[in-house]
Amino acid sequence: MDKTRRIILKATMAAGTLAVAAGANLLTPSTVLAAWPKKAFKSNKMSEAMSIVAGAGKPVPSKDITVEAPDIAENGAVVSVKVTSTLPGVETISVFVPVNNFPLSASYILSDQVVPSITGRIKMAKTADIVAVVKANGKLYTAKKAVKVTLGGCGG
């Protein structure tokens, strides 16, 4: 008898923990919508990372995307990048540094309220292009900007 009661108590407590976990998820809705794409961030192939975060297909170079970054970055650990797109229906903006160990730096999922112009700061191992890939109305577009890095930002 007593044992059953214990089990029931335990089960109720477990259920309680689950409810708390579900509550925590409500605070961060996208953990339900889209899990963090671990494989994309761990991939050393840019094409693989791109297909995971942006979708399959070859991105088309577009003049409607601008990548703003300094021409010369003295410190590769902090490179300010602004990606702006004037394409209609922007869904995601992803930023890549092809020469980094893991080319994918950041990916942004935009709601229709957000103006497709995102500023962030990324690390660059050495002089390279910063490549932005924008998914708009289901299609992929790309643009890049060359940045000269005088001190790499990924070394140890």
Partner: peptide, 22 residues
């Protein structure tokens, strides 16, 4: 939710984010 950022180790220390929305 208006914007979700997925970041990796390639984002700088003390990350900065700026955007506008309607």
């Amino acid at each position: 939710n208006i914007l979700t950022c997925q970041w990796g180790p390639g984002v700088s220390k003390n990350p900065f984010l700026a955007f506008n929305f309607n």
